[in-house]
Design a protein around this nucleic acid. Sequence first.
DNA 1: AGGGCTGGTTTCCCATTGGATACCGCCTTA
DNA 2: TAAGGCGGTATCCAATGGGAAACCAGCCCT
Lengths: 114, 114
Amino acid sequence: MFDPVCPSPLVPFRVGDKWATLILRCLQDGPRRFSELRVPLRGVTAKSLTQSLRGLERDGFVVREEYEGRRVEYALTPLGRGLLVPLDTACEWTREHWDELIDAQEAGLSATDH
Amino acid sequence: MFDPVCPSPLVPFRVGDKWATLILRCLQDGPRRFSELRVPLRGVTAKSLTQSLRGLERDGFVVREEYEGRRVEYALTPLGRGLLVPLDTACEWTREHWDELIDAQEAGLSATDH
DNA sequence: AGGGCTGGTTTCCCATTGGATACCGCCTTA
DNA sequence: TAAGGCGGTATCCAATGGGAAACCAGCCCT
C-alpha cells in the first residue's frame, strides 16, 4: 500500500488529497512524528507531507502536538478516527472486487487501443 | 446535492473526478441519456460530462448504449452498482457527522485567521 | 428550407496540485 | 566545534483538471 509502485491510484476512492488516506492509515495505531510518517510514505516530499497534514489539521481529522524540545507528534482526532470506519468499508470493497476492477480496467483500456 | 451552491465539495470523500459520484447517483434509478444527466448536474459543461462518462466507462462502472437513431443511454454496470454500496456508507457517515465536520472546519479556519 | 434538439468535439485558457531542490533555525551528539 | 537529525519553508516548474465558448453532423418538426 505504501510502496511507490503500488496500484492504489487505481482505487476509485480518494479522501482529500493524494496522501491523506495514507496518513490516516499511518496514524491509526497511535501518534507518529513527522519523520516517522516519511518512512512508510515512501516518496512523499516534506512539502507534500506538510501540506496534507495542514489540510487534515484544518479539517479537524488530525491534531499536531508540540512537546518539549522540537518534538512534534501528529495524532488522529475522534473525528479522524471515525473517518477510518467508512474508509475501511471502501478499502474492503476494493479488495473484494480487486480482480473485477483490474479486469474491467484492462478491458476498457484495450477497447481504446487498436 | 446537485445544487451549484451545495457544500458537497466539503465532504472528505471523492470518487474519481469531480462529477463521478454525482453521475453514479444519477444513474442509480436506471439508465439516463446524456441530456438527462445535464439537467440534475447543474453547471456541468458538455466537455466535463463527456470526460467523466468516458472515465467511468473505461473503468467499467458505466456502459454507453447507442440505440437506433442518435439515442444514447448510460447505465450502471454491476460493478458500478456495487460501487454505490460503499459510497452510500461514506455518504451516510458524512451526513451523521455533518455538524462535527462543519464545526471542525470552521474551528480550523478561524485558527488561521487572526 | 430553416430552425432546433441531440450528443458530442475542439480549442483556449487559467488555477490548482504536487514533485524537485535548496535552504533554514534549532537541538543533540561526538 | 562540527556534523547530523528534526521539522519544516521557499522557490520553481510541469502536469493535470476543468470551465467557456465555438463548432459540428445528423436527425426531426414544421
